[in-house]
Nucleic acid binder design. Structure first.
Lengths: 155, 155
DNA sequence: TCAATTCACTACGATCTTCGTAGTGATCAT
DNA sequence: ATGATCACTACGAAGATCGTAGTGAATTGA
């Protein structure tokens, strides 16, 4: 991304300068969908980011106001990354990307039933995503995940 | 983007592999918002892409089934790029990016009134975007632009 | 008809970014 | 005290992008 910054006031360009590299949205995805919050958790993702690149991305996402870092008081080695309000605002973008990919990737790992659920109840599901991630939960992993909420409501 | 392809079935990753570099979505934006369709038109964008990179992006977007190329019968030098149905599917993603950026960039060039119009009439506006671009029009430029349609309806 | 222009695109060296592996220092568990 | 684990840094190799300068084919204007 050597492209000169601020050379255009186009909003699509602004977004791409903030998170439009090949890795930033994968970090955000790890937080939103899988409840990952630490360096080593991000490092262990399927896509195999290298530590120096991850470090640079965490810095730039923090600088852009998308992530907030904090040290765990119970273990001061541990640094935790959470989405800010601005970062939570990226959820609709990710959901649209997931929907597009699920429709066009024959080998997609996205469960068709989940994609349909999100597509057909978008405002409601986006609200659930937002609320859940805001309080530290995730879409698929954990006690209070969105998937668990939906499952509980289905019965 | 040296990242190994196909190493994950995550739909966010699939999308990013297809159009998640810093330039692809700017090409799509040029088509959708400004009605650009040729190499030199893309080259003249504010963000100053270099011709070799543009050439590579047009190839990869065509390979990904997002763009379709055709030679102008009236001027056989001219190569025209249009969005395929799959490419039209990227419109909701771009609209969400634009909405996020307009909300977080103090210097955004996006007209607030337009962003509000799209936000508050999203299904209707997305349908207009899609229909208009499909028949060769654009959001802001040209006789049949979405902006012109909205202006006509406002009177 | 023929030179000048315009079209999409390639060539290429310099520079920047990413990759992949191997550390480093601080903190924690035993 | 020792070893493990934490977030990261270092660094050379490989790859991508930048910016400028072409190239050949098609079209236009004289």
């Amino acid at each position: 991304m050597k492209r000169a910054s601020g050379k255009s006031t186009c909003p699509v360009n602004f977004g791409l300068e903030a998170f439009g590299d090949p890795w930033s949205l994968l970090v955000v995805r790890d937080v939103v969908y899988f409840g990952k919050h630490t360096f080593n958790e991000f490092l262990a993702s399927d896509e195999a980011i290298s530590p120096s690149v991850l470090s640079a991305r965490l810095d730039s996402l923090t600088d852009a106001g998308i992530l907030r870092r904090s040290t765990d008081p119970a273990d001061r080695r541990r640094v935790r990354y959470d989405l800010t309000e601005r970062g939570l605002g990226l959820i609709p973008i990710m959901v649209e990307i997931a929907e597009w990919s699920a429709a066009h990737d024959p080998d997609t790992g996205a469960p068709a039933v989940w994609i349909a659920l999100v597509r057909d109840n978008k405002p409601d599901m986006l609200r659930r995503y937002n609320d859940t991630v805001r309080r530290g939960g995730s879409v698929f992993v954990g006690e209070d995940s969105v998937a668990a909420q939906v499952e509980a409501a289905r019965v």
